[in-house]
């Protein structure tokens, strides 16, 4: 199944299959991250910098700021949601639950 992902409108949206799914302005709770020294960063998403698919996960790197300490930065890759293998429907994650950014091991776009 082909999944089309874009960051839209100068990074305002993660678009999955031409539907705007995840917006900026949400708070993401990050653990084991390198944005700041906070054990859990309370991270305001201000822009999507990169997006990609690591089947079946849709992933992205987000520019933003920890509102607990004020540190700004760009996250490592975060799972934004998952594409259902059967239906192709996208189910997004809940930003306010804990997320662990990780370095990517696969190419964002298969060659």
């Amino acid at each position: 199944m082909v999944v089309s992902v874009h960051q839209l409108d100068d990074g305002a949206w993660l678009s999955v299959n031409d539907e705007r799914t995840v917006p900026v302005s949400q708070l993401w709770l990050l653990a084991r991250h390198d944005i700041c020294d906070c054990e859990q960063a309370d991270f305001l998403a201000e822009g999507f910098v990169e997006v990609g698919v690591d089947w079946p996960d849709v992933e992205g790197r987000i520019a933003g700021q920890c509102i607990a300490c004020g540190a700004s930065g760009v996250t490592d890759w975060l799972a934004m949601g998952r594409v259902d293998r059967e239906t192709g429907a996208f189910r997004k994650v809940v930003p306010s639950s804990v997320h662990v950014p990780r370095r990517r091991t696969k190419l964002a776009t298969p060659e």
């Binding site: 949206w13 678009s15 539907e19 705007r20």
Partner: peptide, 21 residues
């Protein structure tokens, strides 16, 4: 529907921004 993102990007040239979600 599967070309929304591309068309909305192109429409900007003619002064049209698709409003938000």
């Amino acid at each position: 529907e599967d070309e929304h993102d591309a068309w909305f990007e192109r429409f900007k040239w003619w002064g049209l921004y698709h409003q938000r979600k």
